[in-house]
Amino acid sequence: MPAGAQPPDVLVVDDLVRRFGELTAVDGVSFRVAPGETYGLLGPNGAGKTTTISMIAGLVRADAGTVTVAGSPVGQQKVAVRRHIGLVPQDLAIYPELTARENLSFFGRLQGLRRQDLTRRVDGVLELIGLRDRADDATKEFSGGMKRRLNIGVGLLHRPSLLILDEPTVGVDPQSRNAILESVEALSVEGMAVLYTTHYMEEAERLCDRIAIVDSGRIQAEGTREQLVRLIGAVDQVRLTGGGEIETAAVALRDLPAVERVDVDTNVLVLTVRDAPSAVAALVTGASNAGMTLSDVEITRPNLESVFLHLTGKALRD
């Protein structure tokens, strides 16, 4: 590869279509995922996310369109390319009577790992998913979150180029959910391409480099969080609470470049601004210099829920 050239995309999805009778579950979906990128499919249940990833993994036949993983076309009869794919479905695929280590060793052998390579890989995966200290416990004793993490580990064993995670935190407690998210965050550091489906806005915002908003089988919009928010013209809001020269501070802050609007509400200044995290230091300094004594600063930023509602006319979990 020439110096400075971008590596080829791990996943290329082009105009996928899947129909079930009169229902078009996936309607012309196209996107790409680069090495080391976490790409999110964000949408409510029934939006077509699981059908899309089933076609990508070669489990469901596409009525139209193509999927390429690591440069090879994917299809139900193309077994070799599936070695590049790690699929972690919503349903658990582990044996409750076996320990975590035994589960991983079993699935590793199915994936062609042997002897020292298998042992090293199992140990590395146990460390990555945070289960090394429970490696020799039967998985029937695990919490739901621990089982989910082990399920992710199974998908990682053969070092896939693309890891597909379908709603991996559904039905788990907040602590386990956070542990799962931390495990996923570590994957991009290893250069793995990750395709992540979720209907939780906060997960997409935390994990994903780019996000596709999916509804009714179509991608309604795609981009980084910031690009999606800009798409609907949304801006940030900063509330400065305090006393002193509030009116004077309001006049002074109106002249700052990032400020679009200033409203005064008793002991609060409500400022409409662009990129609040970058502007807040100047806002606080300006208000203080104008004689306002601050007791609280609050930033409210538009989120993906706002974008989804704008694009589809309904809430994300409808």
Rank of each mutant, 00 (worst) to 15 (best):
V13G: 04
L157I: 00
G217E: 09
E190I: 03
V12C: 09
G43D: 08
A287W: 03
E167G: 02
L113F: 00
L231I: 13
G28R: 10
G291V: 03
I53D: 00
R254F: 10
D166I: 00
R206W: 03
G191K: 02
G43T: 07
R261P: 05
A287F: 04
V29Q: 08
N289D: 12
V262D: 04
T66K: 09
A179V: 04
A179L: 12
G171Y: 06
L16M: 14
S105D: 13
L156H: 01
G217V: 08
A287V: 06
H158S: 00
V262N: 06
H158W: 00
E127L: 11
I94A: 01
I219L: 11
D137G: 11
L16C: 10
L23N: 12
G313K: 08
G144M: 02
R210L: 13
E190C: 04
L110R: 01
V194R: 01
I129C: 01
V88G: 00
D215T: 09
Q76P: 12
V10T: 08
M1W: 10
V33C: 07
P302C: 08
R83S: 02
S278T: 14
V17L: 14
V270D: 07
K314W: 10
Q90W: 01
R218D: 07
E203C: 06
V235K: 15
I232F: 09
G144A: 03
N289R: 14
I299S: 05
G242P: 07
M192R: 12
T51Q: 09
R109H: 02
S176A: 13
E141K: 15
T139S: 03
V29I: 15
K314S: 12
S288L: 11
L294E: 05
P168F: 01
I219T: 11
A281M: 13
F20A: 09
D255P: 12
G36N: 03
F106K: 02
E226R: 15
I213A: 11
F20M: 10
L228G: 11
Q237C: 15
R301G: 14
E167H: 02
V67K: 02
